[in-house]
Design a protein around this nucleic acid. Structure first.
Lengths: 158, 158
DNA sequence: ATGAGTGCAAAGGCTTTGCATTAGG
DNA sequence: CCTAATGCAAAGCCTTTGCACTCAT
């Protein structure tokens, strides 16, 4: 059940310090629940849904979770990942884990991270910038997702 | 207000024939409303929301629109595009318009199509296949979106 | 102490569904 | 004719909000 492509992450202690700093920067408190949430996201190592989080930590409450995810997003600690289904998924911000893309399983809804080589990534970026420029579009980021069936669901389908 | 990068599309008459055929294949009728819907999507030339469609054709009814979009999706005539906001967007299937990607404006929510060169696209595909294989993931498609600010919103922000 | 954060429950908003009516083949 | 499709309204479901209580600073 571990991610197929390990994506490097910031060390827990360092992440904790960054979280404290960024929350302070927007005048938000680093409460125990927010600490637990950051920790849960780090543990997950992939974009997780609200249900995943509620399931992983019984002390989480749905409404507070939503509220805290908004706060962490504002603090640029967390990003919301658009999934295939209608469930929001969240993961740590890109500067906290390496730049990567997503494998979206249309069968179970699970999302995993993957990386492409930095050469490929670089080529891609150049091509995207060219296209964006032609359209007069200012790029703030890109999303590259592979949609299909994960190894687990493929095995289960047999 | 026209799309910044024109994406080639199937001719209207041909599209109509294909729609009739594909709907017949799944034993669905090609009713006048479904014809109007296919036409509206072709006219739009970009992924549009339910609100866009209701606005463009006053004879559309919300619930029927949702139902017919599901049917057209099953007929593989239409695909649902995941947006930045919480509104579903729909456009004609990829075989009916050239393979392309999306420019998602985070300010106004508008989505436009764009293409990258076939060379770049080819390189990208190869890189993606390599990564997917490593993860044991079966790829059925990919999504490449640029997120940022469209020309219109950029101009308005001044 | 004092305002931010939290929990519970109720409300919102996009989407789906039930049911009677209409129309396609 | 007879089932699928449509229109209207009501219900669903994820998410957000209101309000009183608790905790951090």
């Amino acid at each position: 059940m571990k991610p197929p492509n390990k994506v490097a992450t910031t060390a827990p202690a360092q992440l904790d310090a960054i979280a404290a700093e960024r929350l302070a920067a927007i005048e938000q408190r680093y409460t125990s629940q927010r600490r637990a949430l950051v920790n849960a996201l780090q543990q997950a190592g992939r974009p997780v849904s609200i249900a995943d989080l509620l399931d992983a930590n019984k002390s989480f409450v749905q409404s507070s979770l939503y509220r805290n995810l908004v706060v962490l997003e504002q603090a640029q600690l967390v990003i919301r990942v658009v999934a295939h289904d209608d469930f929001a998924h969240y993961e740590l911000g890109e500067e906290l884990i390496d730049h990567h893309h997503h494998l979206i399983c249309t069968t179970c809804g699970r999302i995993d991270d993957f990386e492409i080589s930095s050469d490929d990534e670089h080529e891609l970026l150049k091509a995207l910038q060219r296209s964006a420029k032609r359209a007069g579009f200012s790029v703030s980021g890109h999303r590259l997702d592979l949609v299909g069936t994960c190894a687990t669901c493929k095995a289960a389908a047999v």
